[in-house]
Nucleic acid binder design. Structure first.
Length: 541
RNA sequence: UGGGGUAUAGCCAAGUGGUAAGGCAUCGGGUUUUGAUCCCGACAUCCCAGGUUCAAAUCCUGGUACCCCUGCCA
């Protein structure tokens, strides 16, 4: 259930007063893929509706034919469904379905002398609008007769004018302190073909005109949007007050979601795609819904994240850590454990004539996940990172002439290093059965050569080097070149499951797009360098 | 003296006149054959200055900082 926030409070008040059924909507423009920021809005709108036994529409805000594409409709629906929200023919709506109604209301406003056709050029409109400190000037076309306005509006609709020639404006107040009220444009000519209505129209309503009317038509009670629309609210209310419509929704605004080290702007993601920094909208390094799905996020992780961060009007930037912790929290519970070596170093065990095996749990706390057989043979792989010739830098792996625990099975002592051209080819070790005196030794993971499978591992890291990539103009200069690293190693034989925790490495997901066996790292394990833990790590035998 | 918003810990965020929830991060400690998990503990007088009150993060006055607004984008 959604946590109570300031919007919930408003709704509770409204329900008390009006005893009305509430209705919300999520209104994306189909001009790109959905991202984590949309997920927050979806979470708010759908869950508020659920909490107060109301309804929530998905409405495509498709009033600008230049930017919108059919493909995005499909992707958006797919993503919302994947997030776990119900979409049916009854709650999927299109602003473009209301084009005739918008047109009707526009004519109504003309007849009320509240709208006029302006022949001013774009430049002049801009100039006449004034600035924060400079009042606007009325257009010379402002006081034309209703008849003339109606005539030109019809001509405009017929297509006798070109883009930018004329437009329909509301007659509000050119001296308003709120720039959005200085005779806003509500209809413009666009000759670009609309992805849905095709060539039926060449005039299109602007966001300000279409949105409030669509809300009213759908009988939305609470129209929830982001903070930057606060200035538009008086216009939203003005339009609904001045057309003949019986339902009046209320607009409320919340702060957009920002996350450290990430970017969600569609424009900037496009730059990344065009420059081949990422493979596409669903690249697992992006926080698009499809990217996150690829990566190994689940709908519940995203839900829990949205729940955790709350809803307020305070502009904020959420630490990426919180998202990652939500991910780990769930994966820790659900993932089967396995061992995989990403940077293999061969180890020859001199005193192991036969193999040794043991049945070990697939999950440390969840017995139901069962056990698997692991086999130690005289040739195994350990990770290069877990071996050093001499001790330095708080190292906690295997060192020449020292011992280390092998995860689950016994103890190893390094006797020799076999080198060629100063490069380590393999090391030789002696095996010891586990005894209590070895309890405090550090531990490493391993796979045996004979009983493991060759695999690729794709390590995904954050895309940007800066905490607030938004503040950098040229984002291409702050790309983390190590955001995708491919490693070749070995993994234990495994059952048909897609997500695993490779012990001491992180959570990985089987990547079905590759021909060779490939795992993507969803997220690393947390690294906690606590002093208590360091104490334990000091003893070396 | 343009207008509209927002200020509570490093990051989020509850609290709406009765003595500062919770999460993440950080720092201590404990359990553990994953430096994981789990468990325990520490961590703010609420942007500033005045005022009202027995009592103020909450009310009043005056400041300060940051965000949004000059698309025929949404």
């Amino acid at each position: 259930m959604i946590k109570k926030n300031f919007i919930c409070k408003i709704i509770e008040e409204d329900i008390k007063k009006k005893n009305k059924k509430i209705k919300t909507r999520f209104p994306p423009e189909p001009n790109g893929y959905l991202h984590i920021g949309h997920a927050k809005s979806i979470y708010i709108n759908f869950n508020i509706a659920k909490k107060y036994h109301g309804e929530c529409n998905l409405r495509f805000d498709d009033t600008n034919p230049q930017k919108e594409k059919k493909i995005y409709i499909k992707k958006i629906i797919q993503d919302i469904k994947w997030l776990g929200y119900k979409l049916t023919n009854n709650n999927i709506k299109y602003a473009s379905n209301y084009f005739t109604l918008y047109y009707k209301y526009a004519k109504q406003l003309i007849k009320k002398k509240l709208a006029y056709i302006d022949h001013l050029s774009l430049q002049k409109i801009k100039k006449y609008r004034g600035t924060f400190n400079l009042k606007g000037i009325n257009s010379p076309f402002r006081n034309r007769s209703i008849k003339q306005n109606l005539f030109y509006f019809k001509q405009m609709k017929k297509g006798v004018y070109n883009e930018g020639d004329i437009c329909l404006r509301l007659k509000i107040n050119m001296k308003s302190n709120n720039l959005t009220l200085r005779d806003p444009i509500i209809y413009r000519i666009k000759k670009h073909q609309h992805y849905k209505t095709k060539k039926q129209w060449c005039i299109y309503p602007t966001y300000d005109f279409a949105h409030c009317i669509a809300d009213a038509i759908e009988k939305i009670t609470h129209s929830i949007c982001t903070l930057e629309f606060q200035n538009n609210r008086p216009l939203y209310e003005w339009i609904l007050k001045n057309i003949n419509i019986d339902h009046i929704p209320q607009q409320y605004e919340f702060a957009r979601l920002n996350i450290t080290y990430t970017l969600t702007s569609k424009r900037k993601i496009n730059i990344l795609i065009k420059n081949n920094v990422v493979s596409g909208w669903d690249d697992p390094r992006l926080l698009t819904i499809s990217g996150m799905r690829q990566r190994g996020f689940t709908p519940s992780v995203i839900y829990n994240f949205c729940k955790l961060i709350g809803v307020s009007k305070q502009e904020s930037i959420i630490d990426i850590n919180i998202l990652e912790e939500c991910l780990r929290k769930e994966l820790n519970i659900s993932s089967y454990r396995l061992m995989a070596v990403l940077n293999p170093l061969k180890v020859k065990i001199i005193n192991l004539k036969k193999y040794i095996y043991k049945y070990v749990p697939n999950h440390p706390h969840d017995i139901k996940k069962g056990k698997r057989k692991i086999i130690l043979t005289n040739e195994i792989y350990i990770d290069k990172k877990d071996f050093q010739e001499n001790y330095k830098n708080n190292f906690h792996g295997l060192i020449l002439n020292k011992k280390i625990k092998l995860r689950y099975l016994g103890v190893l002592k390094c006797l020799n290093i076999k080198k060629k051209y100063n490069k380590i080819i393999y090391i030789t070790c002696k095996y010891y059965k586990f005894e209590k005196k070895y309890k405090t030794l550090n531990i490493i993971h391993w796979v045996s050569k004979k009983h493991s499978i060759k695999s690729k591992f794709i390590i995904l890291n954050q895309l940007f080097l800066k905490k607030k990539p938004n503040e950098t103009h040229d984002i291409l200069t702050i790309i983390n070149k190590k955001s995708l690293i491919i490693k070749k190693g070995y993994v234990e034989k495994f059952q048909k499951i897609r997500i695993f925790q490779f012990e001491r490495e992180g959570y990985f997901k089987l990547n079905k797009n590759h021909q060779d066996l490939t795992f993507n790292r969803i997220i690393s394990l947390k690294k906690n360098l606590n002093k208590t833990k360091q104490k334990h790590a000091k003893k070396k035998i």
